[in-house]
């Protein structure tokens, strides 16, 4: 770019618009989290359902402990990604805090489960849907907004079908609300 050239107002506007548009579209890397957690949730809910229905194992919900290494991998991945990043946008911070708020909310649900008639799955679905919906709005990616909204149908369904079938609903919900939009985001 040459420095000396006198600018016209149209040229000025053109520069401003072009530079602002440059900052769009680094949302794609977020697809890792949706795919990674989507598959953890599908495997864990199907495992949970199988152990509960077809075996005598007393603590089928224990399969969800795979979430712990999941969080560790997420944190390592997030840390490495932030090192690679050469620009920090406002939306990055908003998305991160949305999911931390989600994490704190589901921790409350998990630890108070016995007072909630063990409707843990439905409540987790409700929070996941909300966080996905908000993330979709922040990064302006409609499949995530729609995927997140679908949890407002799956969550009451999980409640009506009861605790025994809730993990199955969860598996379907995650496939629709996380995995499909996640793959679309990766391709976008």
């Amino acid at each position: 770019m040459k420095e000396e050239k006198e600018l016209t107002s149209t040229e000025s506007l053109e520069i401003i618009t072009r530079m602002i548009q440059q900052t769009k579209g680094n949302a794609k890397e977020g697809s890792f989290y949706f795919l990674f957690w989507g598959w953890i949730a599908v495997v864990a809910s199907l495992g949970h359902f199988y152990l509960e229905q077809f075996t005598d194992f007393e603590h089928p919900y224990m399969v969800w402990l795979i979430g712990i290494p999941g969080w560790i991998i997420t944190m390592i991945y997030g840390y490495k990604q932030s090192g690679k990043k050469r620009v920090t946008t406002y939306s990055d911070g908003l998305v991160m805090w949305t999911w931390l708020a989600f994490l704190f909310s589901i921790l409350v649900v998990i630890f108070t489960g016995s007072y909630l008639n063990f409707q843990i799955t439905a409540l987790i679905l409700l929070f996941s849907g909300m966080a996905t919906f908000i993330t979709g709005l922040i990064i302006r990616f409609n499949p995530l907004v729609i995927g997140g909204s679908s949890f407002w149908i799956f969550a009451p369904l999980a409640i009506y079908l009861g605790v025994a079938y809730a993990p199955l609903v969860m598996a379907v919900a995650v496939a629709v609300g996380y995995l499909i939009p996640g793959y679309m985001l990766r391709k976008a």
């Binding site: 000025s12 620009v87 920090t88």
Partner: peptide
């Protein structure tokens, strides 16, 4: 009111922070 300085400022208006290399590239 200069091409490059306006470009730098417009870019920084829309992000929280940016590295030199990123601004150079954009």
């Amino acid at each position: 009111h200069s091409q490059l300085r306006l470009a730098i400022m417009s870019l920084l208006m829309s992000v929280k922070s940016a590295e030199f290399v990123h601004i150079k590239e954009k």
